[in-house]
């Protein structure tokens, strides 16, 4: 008897050293993935590499930056060997300043209402649809959602955006800023993002005798089996590199079982 064929979803191969192994081939196409992390944990670099690897494969990519001006982002990212400014010049990587987008849409205000949220979704979806974006990064969804005062509206925003982008076959990374990446912490700033996202990648630091070691952990990824182990990461000039974190060193000092 023939074994039943196992259906596997097509993958968006991130191209990031080690991450595709963890995800057993990549992120399922059209997923909305929340990359949550503490400051300095490498979220922006990871997301930018995700786009660059896509651009190298000829995919159209878009990056919406709300946390730092695009000029600064591009300047910081230029030091990585995997990045080529030509990708921006030729339109393979399209970097959008959220401030500029807000200004163009008349959204220069401290809080967004339902109409504003819909206008923003429409604008992002328009961009994705018009230039055929298959990889999208919003850095960060936390900064963006600060302007949306109600939890319900944040939920609607993320759900509608995710649904529309998924329909367009766009794999999205939403960067979320969190203050702690420990086991008991939330994986998102507002608590609603994590429920809506198809996948959650947590990034943070493990303190080991006064030194901070960056880690990455895939907590959830719909549509694929994946490793849920903590992985140490290193931001190198050739991109993000991962290796499984030592089991005896995967926890911070306080939870350490050393010498137990």
């Amino acid at each position: 008897m023939q074994p039943a064929a196992v259906y596997t979803r097509d993958r968006c191969v991130t191209g990031i050293h080690g991450l595709d192994e963890i995800l057993r081939g990549g992120i399922p196409y059209g997923s909305t993935v929340l990359a949550s992390g503490t400051c300095g944990s490498g979220k922006t670099t990871l997301a930018m590499e995700f786009l660059v690897r896509g651009a190298l494969a000829g995919e159209a990519c878009a990056h919406f930056t709300a946390t730092e001006p695009s000029v600064k982002l591009l300047e910081n990212i230029r030091q990585f060997e995997f990045f080529d400014m030509n990708m921006v010049d030729t339109g393979l990587i399209n970097v959008f300043d959220m401030d500029v987008l807000y200004s163009w849409l008349g959204l220069e205000k401290s809080s967004f209402d339902l109409d504003d949220v819909h206008a923003l979704i429409k604008a992002i979806v328009d961009i994705v649809n018009t230039i055929g974006v298959t990889r999208l990064v919003i850095d960060s969804v936390t900064t963006l959602c600060y302007k949306i005062k109600s939890e319900q509206l944040i939920r609607d925003f993320l759900f509608t955006l995710g649904k529309k982008l998924s329909t367009l076959g766009c794999t999205t990374i939403l960067i979320s800023e969190i203050t702690s990446a420990t086991e008991n912490a939330h994986w998102s700033s507002f608590g609603v993002e994590e429920a809506i996202a198809d996948g959650i990648i947590v990034m943070g630091d493990v303190e080991r005798m006064g030194h901070l070691l960056r880690f990455l952990q895939v907590v959830k990824m719909r549509g694929t089996s994946h490793s849920r182990a903590k992985h140490a990461i290193e931001l190198t000039p050739i991109g993000v590199m991962l290796t499984p974190m030592l089991k005896w060193g995967a926890q911070g000092d306080k939870q350490s079982k050393w010498g137990a």
Binding site: R208, H211, E234, M241, T243, G249
Partner: peptide, 14 residues
């Protein structure tokens, strides 16, 4: 630091 064992491995791999 020599305590950053994974970093040492990753640096060597890089």
């Amino acid at each position: 630091s020599p305590i950053m064992l994974e970093s040492i491995l990753l640096r060597a791999l890089y």
